[in-house]
C-alpha cells in the first residue's frame, strides 16, 4: 500500500448494463414480435383482451382528438418536475452528507425514516396539506426521486478512493478543488445509478398518484376508462406509460454513459 488508508467501503462496482452486444437486437425484436403475437392469439382465443389492432385503433383515435398528447404531456410534466427537483435536492443533500459529518448526523435519521414509507402513502396527508392541484402530485414524485437518489449519491461521495484525494492534495489541491475535481466526478456513476432508480420510482409514483387524484394524465385516463370497462383505452395507457418510461430511462442511460465513459467496463 502506498498510502495509509482509513477503512473506506470498497468502491461498489456500478454497473452500466447499456453495453449490450449489438447481436442481441434481432433477438429482442423477435421476442417483442412473439409477445404481441401471443397477445393477439389469446385475444382471438376468446380472452377478454382487446386485440393489438383494436388497441392501435383506439390509440389512433385518442391521438387524433388530442387526448393522448394532452394526457402524456400532463404526466410527463409532473414526472419531470418532480424528478428534476428530487434529483437536484438529492445530489446536494447527498454531497453534504458525504462531505460533512454534521450534515450526515442531521439528515440521516429522516432519510432512513422516510425511506421506509412508500411516497404514495404520504399522498393523503399531502393532499390535505397542499390541496388538490399539481403540488401534491409533484411533491410525492419529488419525494420518490429524492429518496431513491440521495443514498446513492452519499455512497458515491464516501467511497471516493482516499488515494485519489491524496493524489489531488499533493498536486496542490485545496478542499474546494478536491471536491469539485475529484469527489464530484468520482461519484458521478453512483449519482447516475441513483437517478435511474429515482426515475423509475418517480414514474411509478406518478401513475399511482394520478389514479388517486387527478383531472388529466395517463393514469387518470385509465382510471376513467375502468369505470366504462373500456379495455382498449386502458391498454393504450399501459403501453404509453411503458414506452415513455423506457424512452426516459434510455435517454438517461445514454447521457450517463457519455459522462462515465472513463469507467473500466467489465
Amino acid at each position: 500500500m502506498a498510502v495509509v488508508t482509513p477503512p473506506v467501503p470498497a468502491p461498489a462496482r456500478t454497473t452500466s448494463p447499456a453495453r449490450r452486444p449489438r447481436s442481441l437486437l434481432p433477438l429482442n425484436l423477435v421476442s417483442v414480435a412473439a409477445g404481441v403475437g401471443l397477445w393477439w392469439a389469446l385475444a382471438a382465443a376468446g380472452l377478454q383482451f382487446p386485440t393489438p389492432a383494436e388497441v392501435a385503433v383506439q390509440a389512433g383515435r385518442m391521438a387524433a382528438d388530442g387526448t393522448l398528447l394532452d394526457d402524456a404531456v400532463a404526466s410527463l410534466l409532473r414526472v419531470l418536475t418532480g424528478f428534476v427537483l428530487g434529483s437536484a435536492a438529492a445530489i446536494v443533500v447527498g454531497f453534504l452528507m458525504g462531505w460533512y459529518a454534521v450534515a450526515r448526523g442531521l439528515f440521516e435519521p429522516w432519510i432512513q425514516f422516510f425511506r421506509t414509507i412508500p411516497p404514495l402513502a404520504m399522498l393523503p396527508l399531502v393532499l390535505v396539506l397542499l390541496g388538490i392541484d399539481e403540488t401534491p402530485k409533484v411533491f410525492v414524485i419529488f419525494l420518490a426521486a429524492f429518496l431513491s437518489c440521495v443514498i446513492s449519491t452519499y455512497q458515491g461521495v464516501v467511497s471516493v478512493e482516499r488515494t485519489l484525494i491524496n493524489a489531488a492534495r499533493v498536486l496542490g489541491a485545496g478542499d474546494a478543488t478536491v471536491f469539485a475535481r475529484v469527489v464530484v466526478p468520482a461519484s458521478t456513476p453512483f449519482i447516475l445509478v441513483g437517478m435511474r432508480v429515482g426515475l423509475g420510482a418517480a414514474w411509478a409514483t406518478l401513475v399511482a398518484a394520478e389514479l388517486l387524484a387527478a383531472q388529466e394524465g395517463l393514469g387518470h385516463r385509465m382510471q376513467t376508462a375502468q369505470l366504462y370497462y373500456d379495455l382498449p383505452t386502458i391498454f393504450v395507457g399501459i403501453v404509453s406509460i411503458g414506452v415513455l418510461g423506457l424512452l426516459m430511462d434510455r435517454a438517461l442511460l445514454l447521457g450517463g454513459n457519455r459522462l462515465t465513459r472513463w469507467q473500466e467496463t467489465r
Binding site: 500500500m1 502506498a2 498510502v3 488515494t163 499533493v170 496542490g172
Partner: peptide, 19 residues
C-alpha cells in the same frame, strides 16, 4: 501538509480515471 513542492508517486498510480 501536502504541497506541490513535493511530488508523490503512489504505488497504485492513483491516476484520475475520468481525465
Amino acid at each position: 501538509g501536502p504541497g506541490p513542492g513535493r511530488g508523490v508517486i503512489f504505488q497504485q498510480y492513483a491516476l484520475f480515471p475520468w481525465l
